[in-house]
């Protein structure tokens, strides 16, 4: 549907990729660890290797959680924009299929959060 308006109604989206200085927005959520209240949002270079994303970005975001150091990354399950996904750590984010405003969710089996509360 479209906006009911008094005239032509067309505007530029505010969050086009070119507004982020060479980065693309990436949304990240560590599932069932709601100590972090919500998924996070970061502007990342599309050429960043996925390995660096896990080692540097995810640890920067989540390492305060006592479960973080217990994560077995080989067992982690991932989805990218709603579909199951197996990342290639050597390839870049872009080559792994991440676009502007992609959502990455990951599950860490066996880890149930603070006192088993999924926090």
């Amino acid at each position: 549907m479209s906006v009911t308006s008094i005239g032509k109604y067309e505007f530029e989206p505010l969050d086009k990729q070119e507004n982020f200085h060479g980065n693309q927005l990436t949304y990240i959520n560590w599932e069932q660890h709601l100590l972090f209240c919500a998924p996070v949002c970061l502007p990342l270079p599309p050429e960043m290797p996925f390995g660096a994303f896990v080692q540097e970005v995810l640890s920067g975001v989540y390492s305060k959680h006592p479960d973080f150091e217990k994560i077995d990354w080989d067992a982690a399950k991932w989805t990218l924009d709603g579909a199951d996904f197996t990342p290639d750590l050597g390839k870049s984010l872009a080559d792994n299929g991440l676009g502007h405003k992609s959502l990455i969710r990951f599950w860490t089996p066996g880890l149930k959060g603070i006192a088993g509360s999924h926090s």
């Binding site: 949304y27 959520n29 599932e31 069932q32 709601l34 972090f36 209240c37 919500a38 998924p39 996070v40 949002c41 970061l42 920067g60 975001v61 305060k64 924009d81 709603g82 959502l103 969710r105 999924h118």
Partner: peptide
């Protein structure tokens, strides 16, 4: 939390609401 949150495009609240039938899991729509 040291990283800025993902926001809902409409209500603009950080995406901290769960699926109401599964309060362990954040609700996502796109």
């Amino acid at each position: 939390n040291d990283t800025l949150p993902m926001l809902c495009q409409v209500c603009q609240i950080p995406m901290g609401f769960t699926d109401m039938d599964d309060p362990k899991t954040i609700s996502f729509e796109v």
